[in-house]
């Protein structure tokens, strides 16, 4: 196996075995989406209107809150030292780790989105639109969150601080994600907001791993 495929397999195994974090994100997503109607009421027309926003907020929180262990687990058991001592560029390693995290946490969110759309009274077209925008947007969230995970690595209780640091960075993705979903629901083609959403994800995939690798290299002590 090449170094990177070995890393991908290892990350997926660790996430899906006992004690791993896969599927906890999707459970969080389900819970948040279920809670919101209790707060704003079961009015189906209202839920239909705010449904895409609820799904996007839930997916955003679920993507980011599960990220805090992504690098710190490797630091605690000493794996990070060895990872730093290889000729595989650190940014590439981090990108693979983030991708594995998206496969085990982000992709389940995308798959769950159509089912949760039913709860929010979205019709099929709207559910598909939200799912498509989540598919395009959640990898960007993970790559952006990676920066926070690297920055807060040496802190205790870094998880909460990480969210505070990263959530503002995810605002563009949220804006264009919800906007493109709403555009699709309104009957207009996905168009420019969706293109911008895809662009944001691609930018995140480039900037995230590099920024995170700089944060790790400079945070060493």
């Amino acid at each position: 196996m090449t170094p990177l495929s070995a890393l991908l397999v290892r990350e997926i195994r660790v996430a899906t075995r006992i004690g791993g974090g896969a599927l906890i994100g999707v459970l969080f997503f389900l819970t948040v989406v279920t809670l919101i109607p209790f707060a704003i009421g079961p009015d189906l027309t209202l839920l239909k209107r705010v449904g895409p926003a609820i799904l996007w907020l839930g997916a955003l929180l679920a993507s980011l809150l599960t990220l805090d262990r992504l690098i710190s687990a490797d630091q605690e058991d000493g794996s990070l030292d060895l990872i730093l001592m290889t000729d595989t560029p650190l940014a590439v390693t981090l990108a693979v780790k983030a991708f594995a995290h998206w496969l085990t946490t982000g992709l389940p969110l995308v798959i769950a989105a159509p089912i949760l759309s039913l709860l929010l009274n979205l019709d099929l077209a709207a559910a598909m639109a939200v799912t498509l925008t989540l598919l395009a947007g959640t990898p960007g969230l993970t790559f952006t969150g990676l920066i926070g995970a690297a920055l807060t690595l040496s802190l205790r209780r870094g998880g909460l601080l990480m969210s505070v640091l990263v959530l503002p960075l995810t605002i563009p993705t949220l804006i264009f994600g919800v906007a493109s979903a709403s555009a699709a629901i309104g009957g207009t083609p996905l168009g420019p907001p969706f293109a911008i959403l895809c662009a944001l994800t691609l930018i995140g995939a480039v900037i995230g791993p590099f920024a995170a690798s700089w944060a790790l290299r400079h945070g060493q002590e």
Binding site: R10, R13, V14, R17, I18, G19, E76, D77, G78, S79
Partner: peptide, 8 residues
């Protein structure tokens, strides 16, 4: 540290 993953 031994750089082991206990899940594996």
């Amino acid at each position: 540290q031994d750089a082991l993953k206990t899940q594996l």
